[in-house]
């Protein structure tokens, strides 16, 4: 268990055989996807190599400034991704709320996790800070993306329900409640489901990585449990902030529904 097998170059290369087989199959079937498969394999390789070197550099020269820059870059990238992934046009107000909930939701959970749960010193130790930030931000991004599409879709397709409630004297909060609850549910569900299957259906990526690199499975599992709870916290906090503020952007200060105008 203590001797880690370092992959040699030729061993790495032999893993690309999977890609070759896949390309061969799609060619044979006449599916025009060779280019995408090729490009995505190359991109994955280059991005990971660069990240690897970047991380080596960061780990060897720990600095609060670098750590914060990386955190901000991850947040900006994830917010950009959420907005780009949305199928409908989002109002500026809603985009701001996405950014706000991502920042507050992930950063507060991140610091709680690092400083209270794991208790790292210094607080900016990149070996812990960066991968954990990545996991919290990545999972929150997936969750909030679902929440955004459910909320916006719900407001559009159930416009008549919302207005029907307003006409009878409902506050915007009551009128949107069903849609808000629904958006929250569907955004949080993937995280909850992944917790249910964990350890039985699949071994989570972080744990697998740790075990392969020589960590005892018990230690890996301790971390995995802690990080899952951290992810759950971060995802739910992000989504709660988002839906609670987000639905309000569909109403003006006269409690009127404003969409599609």
């Amino acid at each position: 268990m203590n001797s880690i097998i370092h992959l040699q170059l030729w061993q790495m290369l032999s893993a690309y055989l999977f890609v070759l087989i896949l390309i061969f199959i799609v060619k044979l079937k006449g599916i025009p996807r060779e280019k995408e498969i090729f490009i995505s394999s190359i991109r994955m390789t280059i991005q990971l190599i660069l990240t690897g070197y970047l991380l080596v550099y960061l780990f060897n020269t720990p600095s609060p400034v670098y750590t914060i820059i990386i955190l901000i870059a991850m947040l900006v990238f994830s917010i950009y991704n959420i907005i780009k992934r949305a199928k409908r046009n989002l109002s500026l107000k809603l985009k701001q709320i996405i950014a706000l909930s991502m920042c507050i939701g992930t950063v507060s959970c991140l610091f709680y996790f690092l400083l209270i749960v794991v208790r790292i010193t210094p607080w900016y130790d990149p070996r812990y800070f960066i991968p954990i930030a990545g996991m919290l931000i990545g999972n929150s991004m997936t969750g909030i993306s679902l929440g955004v599409s459910r909320l916006v879709d719900g407001m559009h397709t159930h416009k008549d329900f919302v207005e029907g409630a307003l006409m009878l004297g409902a506050t915007p909060k009551m009128a949107a409640k069903q849609i808000v609850d629904n958006a929250f549910d569907s955004a949080i569900l993937p995280t909850i489901n992944s917790m249910v299957g964990m350890g039985i259906v699949f071994l989570p990526g972080m744990m697998t990585g740790q075990i392969l690199s020589g960590t005892s499975p018990i230690t890996a599992i301790e971390y995995q449990i802690a990080i899952m709870l951290g992810i759950l916290g971060s995802v739910s906090l992000t989504i709660i902030i988002f839906v609670q503020l987000g639905y309000k952007t569909f109403f003006n200060n006269q409690s009127q529904l404003i969409i599609g105008e």
Binding site: D160, M167, L168, A170
Partner: peptide, 13 residues
Amino acid sequence: DSVELRRKVSMLP
């Protein structure tokens, strides 16, 4: 206040 008004002047769509 819109909500108060709609509780007095209610509408059937």
